[in-house]
Simulated scan of single mutants.
Amino acid sequence: MRRDIAALMDCDTVSTLPGREHSKGARLEVPIAERLGTTVVYAHDPVSMG
């Protein structure tokens, strides 16, 4: 998980999958990505892909 969080600093976009609310890692990564200004795309929500 430490490597994943560090890798967020090099990402332009993070894509999530349905059920992310049940993932300990995703529950940490999404807010960190948002605070870094990274685009977060919700795979179950095609409107957010625009």
Rank of each mutant, 00 (worst) to 15 (best):
Ile5Arg: 06
Ile5Trp: 00
Ile5Cys: 05
Ile5Ala: 09
Ile5Lys: 09
Ala6Arg: 15
Ala6Met: 12
Ala6Glu: 15
Ala7Pro: 01
Ala7Asn: 11
Ala7Val: 00
Ala7Ser: 12
Leu8Tyr: 06
Leu8Asp: 03
Leu8Arg: 04
Met9Tyr: 10
Met9Pro: 00
Met9Val: 07
Met9Lys: 13
Asp10Met: 09
Cys11Ile: 06
Asp12Ile: 02
Asp12Cys: 01
Thr16Tyr: 04
Thr16Asn: 02
Thr16Gln: 06
Leu17Lys: 09
Leu17Trp: 12
Leu17Gln: 10
Leu17His: 09
Pro18Gly: 14
Gly19Ala: 00
Arg20Met: 13
Glu21Asn: 09
Glu21Ala: 10
His22Cys: 09
Ser23Asn: 04
Ser23Ala: 03
Gly25Arg: 02
Gly25Ser: 07
Gly25Pro: 01
Gly25Gln: 00
Gly25Phe: 00
Ala26Ile: 01
Arg27Ala: 11
Leu28Asn: 09
Leu28Gly: 00
Glu29Tyr: 03
Glu29Asp: 07
Val30Asn: 03
Val30Ala: 04
Pro31Val: 08
Pro31Lys: 09
Ala33Cys: 08
Ala33Asp: 03
Glu34Phe: 02
Glu34Asp: 03
Glu34Ile: 04
Arg35Gln: 14
Arg35Met: 11
Arg35Phe: 04
Leu36Asn: 10
Gly37Phe: 12
Thr38Gly: 01
Thr38Tyr: 01
Thr38Arg: 14
Val40Met: 13
Val41Glu: 09
Val41Phe: 05
Val41Cys: 12
Tyr42Val: 05
Tyr42Pro: 00
Tyr42Ser: 07
Tyr42Lys: 07
Tyr42Asn: 13
Ala43Cys: 12
Ala43Arg: 13
His44Ala: 15
His44Lys: 08
Asp45Gly: 02
Pro46Gly: 04
Pro46Phe: 01
Pro46Ser: 05
Val47Leu: 14
Val47Phe: 14
Val47Trp: 13
Ser48Thr: 15
Ser48Tyr: 06
Ser48Pro: 10
Ser48Leu: 11
Ser48Cys: 15
Met49Val: 11
Met49Gln: 12
Met49Leu: 10
